[in-house]
Simulated scan of single mutants.
Amino acid sequence: MANTSSRTLRLLSLLQSHRYWPGDELAERLGVSPRTLRRDVDRLRELGYPVEARRGVDGGYQLAAGAALPPLVIDDEEAVALVVGLQAAAQGAVEGIAEPSVRALAKVVRVMPARLRRRVEALSAMTVPAAWGGADRAAVDPGTLTEAAVACRDAERVRFAYTADGGRRTDRHVEPHRLVRLGRRWYLVAYDLDRSDWRSFRVDRLTGLRGTGARYRPRDLPADDAAAFVRAGLDELPRPHAVEALVDAPAAAVRDLIGRWSTVEEVDAGRCRVRITAGSLDWAAMALGSVGADFRVLHPPELREHLREWGTRFLRA
């Protein structure tokens, strides 16, 4: 049975590596007779793999697309490439796939042999990320992100060091609940055991995250979902600048550009009122400027002066 099982996995690997295999060549690669090959193919079909057969002198086999994605067999090099690619995707290189990438990472890393993990870690350690305009201040260590995802999935308590916005460093012992990606940042929603309350932690500020081996029974989160909990926490952060402006552009177009950071109300068909609560005037100026339309600042007066300074600097450039 062990020989049959290993041969079946070898057959699957071969079918996944080539679009089409002549029957004689495939049987020779496996060291079996054409009759045994047919039985192995039938065994794969029973497992849900759609293997198509072509009869005749030039007959052979190929793996077709099925209704669902079956388990894949990959070699060591492909496994390392897969993890490195998923780590890059988890950083948000492509919009919309960061969260699925983290879920896939948690599954792959969990079953990856130690020798391959060491190769991935070495490759990550020796690779220097670069970005236009300097390093990304919110860069997340892929290993930390993966460990957090695994701990959430397995309901395992973790410990880590956390550096708050003001630079204060504390040690935390938490029950991780969910990872949330909001904008360009990742947040870990967890129950803080030392403070007996729920918290959200920016993952780029976590260091030394490690599992404790202790399992827990998941608690009820005091919010509709983890994303709502993170947003509510961010809404409570101090934002001293309340900005209001009239923008000469349709409300729908402005919402598409900056709606996630502002409130946009239609004034008429070609004009809208924008309200932004921001931590800095620079950010509000960039948001309004990115619309690509004329606008008039209604409030606060200091933003008008701020824009004059920007305009003078730009003209000098």
Rank of each mutant, 00 (worst) to 15 (best):
L11R: 05
G292R: 02
H18M: 08
G85E: 02
D225M: 08
Y49E: 10
R219K: 09
R219T: 03
S13E: 14
E77I: 08
V32L: 08
N3F: 11
L26P: 00
G213M: 04
R137P: 12
L315I: 14
L188V: 02
A155D: 03
S200G: 03
R185I: 12
G133A: 07
A138V: 12
R115T: 14
L221I: 13
L12G: 01
G96C: 03
R38D: 09
P218G: 01
G48F: 01
A148M: 00
R45W: 09
R159S: 03
V274F: 05
E309I: 12
V247F: 11
V41Y: 05
D282Q: 15
V274M: 09
V291Y: 12
R169N: 06
L9T: 10
D40P: 07
D40E: 15
C272Q: 10
D235F: 08
V94Q: 07
V108T: 11
L307D: 06
R210A: 15
W21R: 07
A130W: 07
A190H: 00
G211I: 00
D141G: 04
R153A: 14
V243K: 01
A253C: 01
L298E: 13
F160D: 02
G208W: 05
W186N: 01
D248V: 11
F314Y: 15
R231H: 09
G92C: 04
G166I: 11
A148P: 00
M126W: 06
T263A: 15
P71W: 06
R119D: 06
H173S: 01
A138P: 00
P300C: 05
A148K: 00
V174T: 00
V32G: 07
A139V: 13
V32K: 09
A161I: 10
V274N: 05
A245S: 07
D194E: 14
V128C: 08
R10W: 05
L15T: 05
G259W: 07
A252V: 13
G279E: 15
T4E: 09
F160L: 04
R239P: 04
Y216F: 15
V297Q: 03
I97H: 01
V174Y: 00
R202P: 06
R117T: 10
G66L: 13
A232W: 06
D282W: 15
R199C: 03
R118C: 07
D40M: 13
P22G: 03
A67S: 08
G59L: 07
R273I: 13
A122V: 12
G92M: 04
D256F: 14
R169F: 07
M112V: 03
A2L: 14
V73F: 07
Y187I: 04
D165L: 15
D204S: 11
A245E: 07
A104D: 10
A269N: 07
E99C: 03
V80W: 02
V109Y: 05
T8D: 05
V128Y: 10
Y61M: 10
V254E: 13
A149Y: 01
A98R: 01
R115D: 14
H173D: 04
L234W: 05
R157G: 07
G133F: 02
V41A: 08
